[in-house]
């Protein structure tokens, strides 16, 4: 089998796996009729939409498919980071003292999906909003800026989340 058609088959199967997992989550029943309907509908939708769901050009598989254990641990780290940042933002709301600044920095992440995940994580933690993402270049609005130095600002804004995302994708 040629690599191109193998990649196509893998993309169809991955889309199908996600759809069938969602079907079981939402239906919550395991009767034969429900399982058959789920398999049929998931296969049909996977055949139609695999090309939009997983882009063809991201040919390296570890750039799309997450590594399981870090992907399971990541939401907990994200939520912990969110609560920590929330209490800092709460303090600056109550005191009224802010030093907002727009900072530019780069990321070491390679794949599109990992960069988007980092941008979402930055916006998800209160106190930082990602304004622009262009290739590996981030523009971030930072509520309590401590520095104007771009590399140091990048390290403080990204925190440990960039390393956590790098363990999931690349």
């Amino acid at each position: 089998m040629r690599p191109r058609s193998l990649w196509k088959l893998i993309r169809i199967l991955a889309t199908f796996a996600v759809l069938i997992a969602l079907w079981f989550l939402f239906s919550g029943s395991f009767s034969p009729a429900s399982i058959l309907t789920g398999i049929g509908c998931s296969a049909l939708i996977a055949l139609i939409s695999y090309n939009t769901f997983i882009d063809e050009h991201e040919a390296a598989r570890n750039m799309v498919f997450p590594r399981l254990l870090p992907a399971l641990a990541y939401p907990f780290r994200l939520v912990a980071a969110m609560y920590a940042a929330s209490f800092r933002t709460l303090a600056s709301v109550l005191s009224g003292r802010v030093s907002p600044r727009v900072v530019h920095f780069r990321s070491r992440l390679k794949s599109d999906i990992a960069r988007v995940a980092l941008a979402e994580a930055i916006t998800f933690t209160p106190g930082t909003i990602s304004i622009e993402l262009d290739e590996d270049h981030f523009i971030v609005h930072w509520l309590n800026a401590t520095t104007r130095h771009s590399a140091r600002a990048g390290d403080e804004v990204k925190g440990p989340l960039e390393a956590a995302i790098k363990r999931i994708w690349v």
């Binding site: 969110m82 609560y83 929330s86 933002t89 709460l90 709301v93 109550l94 009224g96 802010v98 907002p100 916006t123 998800f124 209160p126 106190g127 930082t128 909003i129 609005h141 509520l143």
Partner: peptide, 25 residues
């Protein structure tokens, strides 16, 4: 706190930060 921040902070970006306290946390 997020609602207080929306009224208290000076510009659109910082108000957005305060509203993300309500919208996210």
């Amino acid at each position: 706190a997020g609602t207080i921040g929306v009224f208290r902070f000076p510009d659109a970006y910082t108000r957005l930060q305060a509203s993300s306290l309500t919208g996210t946390t």
